[in-house]
Design a binder for these strands. Structure first.
Lengths: 402, 402
DNA sequence: TGATTGGTTTGTTTGGGCAACCAACAAATT
DNA sequence: AATTTGTTGGTTGCCCAAACAAACCAATCA
């Protein structure tokens, strides 16, 4: 019983109203068009309560009504929809070499997107540049004022205090990014900062197009390294020190290959883009330095064109991916594992390998095969994730701690 | 937004009352003696609200008042205490070879305890025997009627539907233990069934004596195998198929030693009591069959007496424990890891080994050393865990789903 | 074909219950 | 007198149940 928890409940009793408001808003978002009556059935709330809350949200201009003619007997329902082209959020995804930024609507649709090179030497300065570019994009799109801003970083991020604890690829440590943002954007309401893989999980949860239940799942982001976001009962698991889900550095082969973290046998050393490249180069007996991002894409492209060596390397990667996934399944026992990254382009090559290993390793006593799927997002998950961080604030906008 | 979640909120709005009732009851339990005024400060609730709820709980006879003379100015507070020797629960812990049962008070104190051999061939029959023995114990202790019953099993248990999905050591599969219990005890109010390691985590959370915050931690139960319970934000993480925390079968050494599950390189094959015994026997060149439980205890006893080989084997075990713990830290990022099992008897031997490995492996970018501690319970954690399952029901007794 | 009526569904209004809050007050103690 | 604890009475706000109004379909009848 820590006092944090206590405060969530207490304060004023509008909380219940807030929870219901968020519930209804989310139902509209996910199931639109939907009627008040239908919402009442889904939530179990009384019709009058739903009406009251809906009229509040209507006043906030987050949704709108539209008459409908349905085929059923009885009075026709009034359909409710999210109101688009009204509120927008900014999204910035800072990666080791490339930074993407975008403006998104509250349904997660990207209104505009652009790229700049990451220059991480001076963090404050770079953040300022990103925001200025983002505002330029807003102007170009003829949008006034952003309702919120979400920023994603490949590293360990304290989302509560808006601090980048540790981002080895950027060389940032204990960087107060919240302050840096607020210096440039003093008037913006909601600022959120997160880890890229965790936010990707959030994007999948909010805007994914899967037909399966995503209340318990793990999102795996396969890039140069491996990141992840764990969702348990519809909530992102953050970890005591914001560092949960660092499966990339989980040891699967004690004493094995060297990882960038200095240890040996990390999963990342076997199943990341970097591992793909290094395995390929080893087999080619090529020892030159290459850019991981481009080279990994090259190998994937070659595999698509049936290049045998590339396919062999990717199959091997699939095997190692499966090993780690089996471990994740045993640890977390999720309902699904969703994978994002370049390798999803060659899903037909890697998935059979993953499945074989997972079935062999993770099913001692299990009767149900856990779904392993590529991301359903057609935007870069981490960029949409940054937007989701901001959108989330709008939807659950009532502050739980008053 | 699944409908399960929705129903938690809905129904009738007494939920808030229920949550506050549970909060207050738990505060009294953990911090007694405590005054109404103090509770109000801790929870942020209004004094009058606290008074109202406290008087309800007084009527239920779960707590009692006692005048106090404190040193401060002003009216002296009326101290509140849990009322003991009033309500009791039964606890049964079914292990592969030995079954323990006990009667406990609502503060987790064991009133009486006994042991029988496990006979798992006929599950219904064995459950019946256990309960009859437990009732005999009640009689002997002069206690009338149990307020609840908690049963622990080493295996995957569906706590919601009271079904043992898979308990390899007992040979039970899809056994409806709830029905079996209810056949013998048709009148008992609360029946709870759980996994032994998960329940142990619960026992540590409720009745542990640590001075650290336990809202996020992992309990590791080191026995013949390795089980675990993950607590996130004061809640046990169950897993989609009740199988979370199966770290024992996490692969840490692909292609390594054979595990009882049929795979190679599982953590359990390196860091369990069974591993201790097999490593000891290998070094002794002894190939005979031994009872794992007794033999592991023997090795530990020898180590206490400075037997070099035993110490060497245990140190080795510490090293492997550390490897797995490092992986758990990376996966879950808990605030602490609490370890239960025979090996905690030789904590001074294994802890330095664990700490070395963990510091080396799990601290890429970490600034805070995660606490790794032996269990603070002086009873068998899984037996107290079984009791906790039942006590939990009393304290959160209002049914959230109406 | 057009009007009427019954049945159905949606959404609103109204009155009441309950939980929590606030402020004033009583009680007990330094 | 000052301070702290706990209670009481009144108020607010949220939700619910039930009645009601509105809108629509379908069957029926003139």
């Amino acid at each position: 019983m820590n006092s944090d928890n206590v405060n969530i409940i207490t304060g004023n009793s509008k909380i219940l109203r807030g929870i219901h408001r968020a519930m209804i808003l989310n139902i509209i978002r996910e199931m639109q068009p939907i009627s008040r009556s239908n919402i009442a059935k889904l939530t179990g709330l009384n019709k009058s309560t739903v009406s009251s809350i809906v009229s509040e949200i209507l006043n906030e201009d987050l949704i709108f009504e539209q008459e409908s003619a349905d085929q059923n007997v009885g009075r026709n329902p009034i359909n409710l929809f999210l109101k688009l082209n009204k509120y927008h959020v900014g999204a910035i995804n800072i990666d080791s070499s490339i930074t993407r930024y975008a403006v998104a609507d509250i349904d997660g649709s990207i209104k505009g997107e652009a790229i700049i090179d990451t220059d991480s030497k001076n963090p404050e300065k770079f953040v300022e540049i990103c925001i200025i570019e983002l505002l330029k994009l807003c102007n170009k799109l003829n949008l006034d004022g952003l309702k919120g801003l979400g920023v994603n970083i490949a590293g360990i991020v304290d989302s509560k205090n808006l601090i980048v604890n540790f981002a080895p690829n950027l060389g940032w440590e204990d960087f107060n990014i919240g302050e840096a943002i607020r210096k440039v954007l003093p008037n913006i309401k909601n600022i959120s900062v997160g880890n890229d893989a965790k936010s990707s999980a959030l994007a999948e949860l909010w805007f994914g197009n899967h037909k399966i239940d995503l209340s318990n799942f793990v999102f795996l982001s396969i890039g140069p390294g491996i990141g992840s976001g764990i969702v348990v009962e519809n909530k992102l698991m953050n970890g005591e020190y914001q560092a949960s889900g660092e499966f990339g550095h989980m040891i699967i082969f004690e004493g094995g290959d060297l990882c960038t973290c200095g240890n040996k046998g990390c999963w990342e050393a076997y199943a990341s883009d970097r591992a793909i490249v290094s395995q390929y180069l080893t087999k080619k007996s090529d020892k030159l330095e290459h850019n991981v991002d481009f080279m990994a894409q090259d190998i994937i492209d070659m595999a698509k064109k049936k290049d045998e060596l590339s396919i062999e390397v990717l199959k091997q990667t699939g095997f190692y991916l499966g090993l780690g996934i089996a471990n994740i399944i045993k640890a977390i026992d999720p309902h699904a594992i969703i994978i994002g990254g370049k390798i999803t382009q060659v899903w037909d090559i890697i998935y059979p390998e993953i499945l074989t290993v997972v079935t062999q390793r993770a099913y001692f006593g299990r009767k149900i095969i856990i779904k392993i799927l590529p991301t359903s997002l057609n935007v870069l998950p981490s960029l949409l994730g940054a937007a989701t961080l901001a959108i989330e604030e709008i939807f659950d906008g009532f502050k739980i701690i008053s």
